[in-house]
């Protein structure tokens, strides 16, 4: 839950690379049983982690079947009856559900337009610094908010922008109009984007900075000798150098259009009401554990999100390949 989108992006990139290069082992003809016995200590190492994934990921995957049953929290899953796709029909006929989907996509696209360029710009600014000391110092400051929990981020924003907060206090003291931001449905989406920018754009620079550092310095040198000024070097050397990373992150972001910060939204939905603050994940929560008690409906919404997400990852990956980039996987 805590890994940021950027962090997850990095992981997927790493995982992809790891998957591509199988380590070469000389082919040996030891029997399978002997290999298992030989590597028994390795299997022992594997055990706790494997058990974790089997129970909490694969096991949980089986829990999705309740979407096709009439399960309710008072009975066990085995006691419930199969009802087929009835729950899905109910869900697709629920205007609240579609409202949550629209909200989710809207917030996602706003993030794409207004958040995505910020870490890139900040990374370019940091990269252009010649003093390593200042660069390090700023990096340490801007990374910090990534490690602050959403609860605290929301509390900080309330304290700064709320009705009794710093900004409104300042405006009132100077006889100006106060601004109504916290708890105002109309200002909610910009507020969400501002929070994401504050929390994660610093941390998001890491992957761009790494890509910028990989750009071959001799390219800069050669183009400078050929008379290219700073802007032309930026356009013809820097941008092509980090194009792959930008495309990769865009692909991942598009694949996650239906995932916007669940914790962030859950914390603030009540303040603005479901009209502005409901996303798919909070819909799942409020229909089930958050008071609704309708577990099959919540599971169905979860499946909907998973299936659409998988299709989007697949499609976005195809687009990346068309653009001549690696994408997430081959």
């Amino acid at each position: 839950m805590t890994a940021s989108t950027i962090a997850r992006n990095t992981a997927a990139a790493g995982g992809d690379g790891a998957g591509k290069k199988p380590p070469r082992v000389p082919r040996d003809r030891t029997s399978l049983w002997r290999k298992l016995v030989r590597d028994r200590l390795l299997w022992l190492c594997l055990l706790p982690g494997l058990a974790y994934f089997l129970i909490f990921h694969l096991g949980a995957a089986f829990g999705m079947v309740i979407a096709f049953t009439d399960y309710w929290p008072g009975i066990s899953v085995a006691q419930s009856n199969l009802v087929g796709v009835e729950t899905f029909q109910k869900m697709f006929g629920d205007p609240d559900f579609w409202h949550a989907v629209v909200n989710t996509v809207e917030i996602s696209l706003l993030q794409l337009v207004f958040y995505f360029p910020v870490p890139l710009g900040l990374a370019l600014l940091l990269h252009s610094l010649t003093s390593t000391t200042i660069k390090r110092l700023v990096q340490n400051v801007v990374y910090l908010p990534h490690f602050i929990s959403w609860v605290i981020v929301v509390a900080l924003f309330q304290q700064i922008l709320g009705g009794a907060g710093v900004v409104n206090g300042f405006l009132a003291d100077h006889g100006l109009h106060t601004v109504d931001i916290i708890g105002n449905p109309d200002a909610f989406k910009p507020l969400l984007i501002a929070q994401v920018i504050w929390k994660d754009s610093g941390w998001g620079t890491i992957i761009f900075l790494a890509a910028l550092a990989q750009v071959d310095d001799t390219l800069y040198e050669a183009s400078a000798m050929d008379g290219a000024g700073p802007w032309r070097r930026f356009w013809h050397v820097t941008l092509p150098g980090i194009r792959s990373v930008i495309v990769l992150l865009l692909v991942l972001r598009l694949g996650e259009v239906l995932s916007v910060g669940f914790e962030q939204l859950l914390l603030q939905r009540d303040a603005v009401g479901p009209g502005a603050g409901e996303i798919i994940d909070t819909y799942v929560f409020y229909k089930s554990l958050g008071g609704g008690g309708d577990f099959p409906l919540a599971a169905a919404a979860g499946i909907f999100k998973g299936v659409i997400g998988a299709i989007l990852v697949y499609a976005a990956n195809k687009v990346a390949h068309r653009l001549g980039e690696q994408g997430v996987y081959r």
């Binding site: 997850r8 992981a11 997927a12 995982g15 790891a18 998957g19 199988p22 380590p23 070469r24 082992v25 399978l32 290999k35 298992l36 030989r38 590597d39 390795l42 299997w43 594997l46 494997l50 994934f53 909490f56 990921h57 694969l58 949980a60 995957a61 089986f62 829990g63 999705m64 309740i66 994940d281 799942v284 929560f285 089930s288 554990l289 577990f295 919540a298 599971a299 979860g302 499946i303 999100k305 998973g306 997400g309 998988a310 990852v313």
Partner: peptide, 26 residues
């Protein structure tokens, strides 16, 4: 590298990462 099936296990784990279980199944 010598672990039998290690790569398959790794791919399976990466797959769970792309498709996390929902809140209710968990």
């Amino acid at each position: 590298p010598q672990l039998v099936g290690g790569r398959k296990i790794l791919l399976g784990i990466l797959f769970t990462f792309l498709f996390p279980p929902g809140m209710i199944p968990a």
